[in-house]
Amino acid sequence: MSEVSFYTGVAERLGYVCRLLRKAQQSGARVTVVGPAAALERLDAALWTFDATEFVPHLRLRGEVDGSTVDRSPILLTESLGQSASDGVLLNLGAELVPGFERFARVLEVVSQDAQQVQAGRERFRQYKSLGHPVIHHEVTA
């Protein structure tokens, strides 16, 4: 069973995701981030610039990629799990459950204050619960 953590009420989602990924990487976790191409492009750019004194190592997967490069990258950004072999932590940036999320020990969901994201997040929360996965809710405050 995957443990699912929801972070809701996030005022600035992109910055929060960057900080969450930095914390995960510093703890030694391997994270696969799945989402739409546009969201991944914004995240890829933000991981280079969100903190002027640090770099969060990551790899944006597109097409064929050398397996050894993937193995050395602590954070993978991809549109689908088919390109990723990691089974540690999954961070979902999409509006729906990621097919195959069950192979990850932990799933992270970051939901902003946007009405559409809130509604989609509630639906994913219900789906995880109905599938029997333990769900932890973290309400983010400013």
Score class of each variant (00 low, 15 high):
M1Q: 06
S2K: 07
E3L: 14
F6R: 02
F6V: 10
Y7F: 15
E12P: 04
Y16M: 10
Y16S: 10
C18K: 00
C18W: 00
C18H: 01
R19M: 03
L20I: 01
L21V: 04
K23G: 08
A24F: 05
Q25L: 09
Q25G: 09
S27E: 14
G28H: 11
G28I: 03
G28Y: 08
V31K: 04
T32V: 15
V33A: 12
G35Q: 07
G35K: 06
A37L: 13
A37N: 08
A38V: 05
A38F: 05
L40T: 05
E41V: 08
E41N: 13
L43T: 00
L43N: 02
D44H: 02
A45Y: 02
A45C: 04
A46D: 01
A46I: 01
L47M: 07
W48L: 00
T49F: 00
F50G: 00
D51Q: 01
V56S: 00
P57F: 01
P57S: 06
L59C: 13
R60E: 00
G63T: 03
V65S: 15
V65Q: 15
R72G: 13
S73Y: 06
S73H: 06
L76H: 07
L76R: 02
L76C: 12
L77V: 05
T78N: 08
L81M: 05
L81G: 09
A85T: 10
A85Y: 03
D87Q: 14
D87E: 15
V89Y: 04
L90E: 05
G94H: 05
G94E: 06
G100E: 03
G100F: 05
E102H: 04
E102K: 06
R103I: 07
F104H: 08
A105C: 08
A105K: 15
V107M: 09
L108Y: 07
D114T: 00
A115H: 11
A115R: 14
Q116Y: 10
Q116L: 14
A120Q: 13
R124T: 08
R124E: 10
F125N: 11
F125C: 09
Y128D: 03
K129A: 14
S130K: 09
G132Y: 06
H133D: 04
H133W: 07
H133G: 03
P134W: 06
I136R: 15
H138E: 06
H138G: 09
E139W: 08
T141I: 12
T141L: 14
